[in-house]
Simulated scan of single mutants.
Amino acid sequence: MVAGRKANKRPSMFEVAKLAGVSHQTVSRVINNSPDVSTSTRAKVQRAIEQLDYRPSNSARSLASHRSRTIGLIAGGQNFYGPISAIGAIESIARSHGLFMSVMMVHEALCTQKEFDNLCRTFDEQNVDAFIFLTPTDVMFSAACRARISRPRVLITSAHGGMGVQEELRLLRPADRRKVALVGIDQWGAMEDVMHVLKARGHRSALYFAGPREWRDAFTRLAAWNKLCATNAVNSVTVQCKTWEGGEAYAKMNHVLENIGRSGGRLPSAVVTANDAQAMGVARAMHEHGVRIPQDVSLVGFDDMPGVDNMLPPLTTVRQDFETLGQLAMCEVLYLLGEGAEPGYASSQHGVGLVPAKLVQRSSVGGASSR
């Protein structure tokens, strides 16, 4: 223990400065990673910090820098693979930049503007530096755009939905609009890759299992699929689902197969689903009806959830790059805070910077059956 300091008393910045033989301002600059400190001085201060086991007070650092180094994250979709993966990536990237994440979850479909505004006020009381809003549904996207906050906000969303991006952003005050950034996954490009593979294998008829209408990713995937089918002369029938659950897709696929059996109709050569859980349900229904994958019908999912590579057969699906999504969301935060360069994107739509997704080809897709 350093002489003159009582046991169990937390060491102060002034004690670090005294031990290192520097001013407390210099210690502060070292703690805040200022470049205006020589290598030798920085080393002396670090040695003193380690010797005293000094831990800087976050509240003191906030007062000195006028920054809390805390980001407020409001997110929906806590029960789903995509949003949870994105939250994990965001938190990891934030931690690597020395930032703290304060997270609040809401129900993505039942969240009201009042609830959203109350959460924002709670974060304001914590003096967060910026907000990240993970808004998978139209109702959350609208609430995030309408929130009356002055701090920078980054919205993670899809480029399309029942509510248009630019229409919603016009509701913002001009001063606030300059402090908003939007990032998302390139759903449209992913569906183009799916169509390219199916067309190359000779598929001209398909079923498309759509996700819940209020989810912006589901809206974008369906809009892209319908346009691509029209462009590529693929005859597609949409099976609209109210949930993302495999059980619903299983029941609906059973109904489709039973109708085909009764009417003597033809199977589509391919089934494309809006997520992997739906693909699992569809695969189960086809197996129970003696429909072989891919010999009779090819199957494509979306998400590349853990385990789908071990389905029988392994599932062809789209892998979304949530790590890069989280990284770019944090880059946008740092840029809006004046602490980093403006991030670049390979493509964008309606002002949403897009992260590419990758089609992972496995053996659930084959050539179109001649049956």
Rank of each mutant, 00 (worst) to 15 (best):
S370A: 06
A218C: 08
E125S: 14
G4Y: 08
A368H: 01
H97A: 05
S347P: 04
A341H: 09
V272C: 13
V256G: 05
L222P: 01
I260H: 11
D129G: 08
A17S: 03
R178G: 14
I293Q: 09
K18L: 01
L312W: 03
Y81K: 02
V128D: 12
R61F: 00
E91Y: 04
V183I: 10
L19Y: 01
V237W: 00
R146P: 00
F302Q: 04
V16R: 06
I74N: 04
G247L: 01
P152I: 04
R204A: 06
V139R: 08
L312Q: 10
G261F: 12
D176A: 15
V165N: 12
P152S: 06
H97T: 02
V272L: 15
V197S: 11
A251N: 14
A75K: 02
A277T: 12
R213T: 09
K179W: 04
R170Q: 15
G76S: 06
P294A: 14
G301Q: 05
A130R: 03
D304G: 00
V197F: 02
E115R: 09
Q361W: 00
Y208C: 02
K114V: 08
Y250K: 05
P83Q: 07
V154A: 13
L354E: 06
E125P: 00
T317A: 12
V297D: 03
A230Q: 12
D193Y: 01
D321I: 10
W215V: 15
A147E: 05
A60L: 09
K358Y: 10
G82Y: 15
R170L: 15
V165G: 13
P356M: 06
A274T: 14
K227L: 11
R121Y: 02
N118K: 10
K179D: 13
G184M: 07
S363W: 01
A249M: 05
A223M: 09
G211M: 07
M195G: 02
I156D: 03
L110N: 12
V103S: 00
G21P: 02
S28F: 08
M330A: 07
Q349C: 11
A17Y: 02
A181W: 00
N8I: 03
G340E: 10
R173H: 14
R69K: 14
G202D: 04
A200M: 11
F209T: 13
M105Q: 04
V355G: 06
L207V: 08
A181P: 03
P268T: 10
W188Q: 14
I293T: 04
L328N: 07
Q240S: 13
K358W: 00
